[in-house]
Design a protein around this nucleic acid. Sequence first.
DNA 1: CACAGGTCAGCACGATCGTTCGTATTTTTT
DNA 2: AAAAAATACGAACGATCGTGCTGACCTGTG
Lengths: 195, 195
Amino acid sequence: MTKAISQTKEKILEVALDLSSRWGLVNLSIGELAKVVGMSKSGLFGHFKSKESLQKMVLDLASMNFVQTVIKPSTKESRGVPRLNAIVENWITWSTDKHQGGCPIVTAIIEFDDRPGSLRDHVKILQKEMLNGFNKAVSIAVDEGHFKEDLDTDQFVYELYSYMIGFHIFARLMNQEKAKTKLRKSFRDLVARNA
Amino acid sequence: MTKAISQTKEKILEVALDLSSRWGLVNLSIGELAKVVGMSKSGLFGHFKSKESLQKMVLDLASMNFVQTVIKPSTKESRGVPRLNAIVENWITWSTDKHQGGCPIVTAIIEFDDRPGSLRDHVKILQKEMLNGFNKAVSIAVDEGHFKEDLDTDQFVYELYSYMIGFHIFARLMNQEKAKTKLRKSFRDLVARNA
DNA sequence: CACAGGTCAGCACGATCGTTCGTATTTTTT
DNA sequence: AAAAAATACGAACGATCGTGCTGACCTGTG
């Protein structure tokens, strides 16, 4: 399905991801990217047939990294609340330490929420996948008896997701040290009130 | 304190605000803006001495509009929870109907959260003012006896704010019709569990 | 050894960026 | 009415944008 990616291309995408986490995917410049990577603009461009294709690949790398950092480790925790808790903790790490500019997907979400085109569609799909994953994790917690039987999982996910985005802003823009505490408390309460 | 603003300048800023709600403040182009307004690039530019000054004024207009649309009408409601409820309802209107691209400040927050400079500082100040206002409104509700005496108002504001941002994303990117219902339910629960 | 394919640099393209300048026209002040 | 200030324009600036073309170098297959 997924073809092998050359070393150079991989290197380029990593740098591009880091840059776009800070400056956004829209403003990612090929010239600037080439300068940072240390190769010529046209040489770099040759790896992607268009800027849009580059952006899409950056987006996919971001998604892969997100799954690798936030989702996958959580599956090693036991089903239900512990697993949800791991997602929250991994999100804190991901959002704080993994990129210079925080979660690159959050940036993309806001950039593309009113920018029609194939990239918006792609972001939307990735986001829907993530929300579906959250939904499933919450459903598992219901099955495990951690939450009440008639839990509105969509509502639960909306609240959890909102807390996570809120954390991004409080921690990054407002530089609030206490953002982690706030997110953790919000999560504990969310779990408690739906048990 | 604030000097009068000419009609042309006002018109320019209104268009600029609408454009930037869709495409962001960073990507707001003076040439494109001039085209939409219907005047020359240099003529428009003359009103502002730099792009940064233009962006700052757009930001201030956004802030003024936000206060006018979301905050000020809420003060006509009775103190405490009704007033908070009005803020949420006005936010839904503001975020959905007032601009082509949703709340322009949300866009700016994400754009500038990792982009050092005077604009970031400005966004941060505006946001801090807003959060302080929220905090005060919540404190009033405590005084009115709507919430428990020992309420952690910072935590309350964090959760409320997160729900509002979450609404922006669910409604705009995900086009979820049910976003309004979700935000309203979240707010009702937030109020109930802190009463 | 020849040849094909891929990788990369150099150069150039048209477009657009923010900004400056000089100038004509209008408005305000004296 | 004369002088000063504000307003808007067209043209041009250097820089950078995404993209295409050409050719050198490298690698591996026949």
